[in-house]
């Protein structure tokens, strides 16, 4: 094994500095006393306390959280089914189209997805608002869930499923007793990913929204256009905190489940041996 050369260390450190510095600066200036976000004038948490009195912002946050919870949950179910269909059924009619529809939304420019969904809702006469945003979010986030779950299914030892089937379990029972517990960490991280994507989305929400449904990114965007303020830095810091906490918890849970599973597997092998 060659050593980690100075060049490699430098590129990783510089790269991570580039990735994190803007976020760190944003967080620091959310605690700035002054209204200017570029000149430090002392520590203060006043911008955070002001947020609590901004009713429009709190309403938007509540809409965003409800959309996120609902769409992430539905997207996880649909995305997991899509991943199963892609991995377990190597041939069925229209499979090429299906896999195309799963991968295309990952790279599709958001303006196109947003416009096309809006025109669908208008064409079928669906009232725009909370539900249309939720349906739109389910559609684009389910594909991300599908990819995450699919990669776990591909590295899955199918012989345990076959064993369960040989022992007389129905496919449905096998799925819930064997497959789901094994892929659960991936399904969980798929849910977290779908939730954060929904929390973040500006473009698709703006196209598919209607009167009375304003999400937090839409609110932030309209304020950002008016200029940079420490109040926006404060909201952003809270959102970054929530997401970072979510990701850290998700990775700890995943890690723990993996360790547990490996221990179980070793115990099972030892018992057989």
């Amino acid at each position: 094994m060659e050593k980690w050369s100075r060049f490699n260390i430098a590129s990783v450190v510089l790269g991570f500095g580039f990735l994190y510095l803007p976020i760190v600066l944003l967080v620091i200036f959310s605690f700035n006393e002054s209204k200017l976000v570029t000149v430090w004038a002392g520590f203060s948490t006043k911008w955070y306390s002001q947020l609590w009195h901004n009713q429009g912002l709190l309403d938007a946050a509540w809409v965003t959280i409800r959309v996120g919870l609902l769409s992430a949950t539905c997207a996880t179910v649909l995305g997991t089914l899509a991943a199963l269909a892609l991995v377990r059924y190597s041939r069925f009619r229209g499979r090429v189209l299906f896999s195309g529809m799963v991968y295309a939304p990952l790279v599709m420019p958001e303006v196109i997805t947003g416009l096309s969904l809006l025109l669908l809702f208008v064409a079928i006469g669906f009232d725009r608002g909370f539900w249309t945003i939720t349906l739109a979010h389910i559609t684009f986030t389910m594909c991300f869930v599908a990819v995450v779950v699919q990669s776990r299914l591909l590295s899955f030892d199918q012989s345990i499923e076959e064993a369960a089937l040989d022992l007389g379990a129905t496919p449905v029972r096998t799925f819930f007793a064997i497959t789901l517990p094994v892929i659960a960490p991936a399904v969980f991280s798929g849910w977290v990913l779908a939730f954060t994507l929904s929390l973040d989305d500006l473009v698709i929400s703006s196209f598919t929204t209607g009167p009375g449904a304003t999400t937090l990114p839409m609110k932030i965007y309209s304020q950002v256009r008016l200029g940079v303020t420490p109040e926006i830095n404060a909201i952003c810091t809270i959102l970054i905190g929530i997401v970072a906490l979510g990701v850290v918890v998700a990775s700890i849970v995943t890690k723990r489940r993996e360790v547990q599973r490996e221990r179980d597997e070793r115990a099972a092998i030892a018992a057989i041996g």
């Binding site: 990735l19 803007p22 600066l25 990114p217 997401v243 970072a244 990701v247």
Partner: peptide
């Protein structure tokens, strides 16, 4: 994990952070 983390933070926020810079 450190490369993935910024990807989970809002796109809008990360773009916004550059305005002040």
């Amino acid at each position: 994990m450190m490369v993935i983390l910024p990807f989970w933070t809002s796109f809008l926020i990360r773009v916004y952070a550059w305005i002040a810079i």
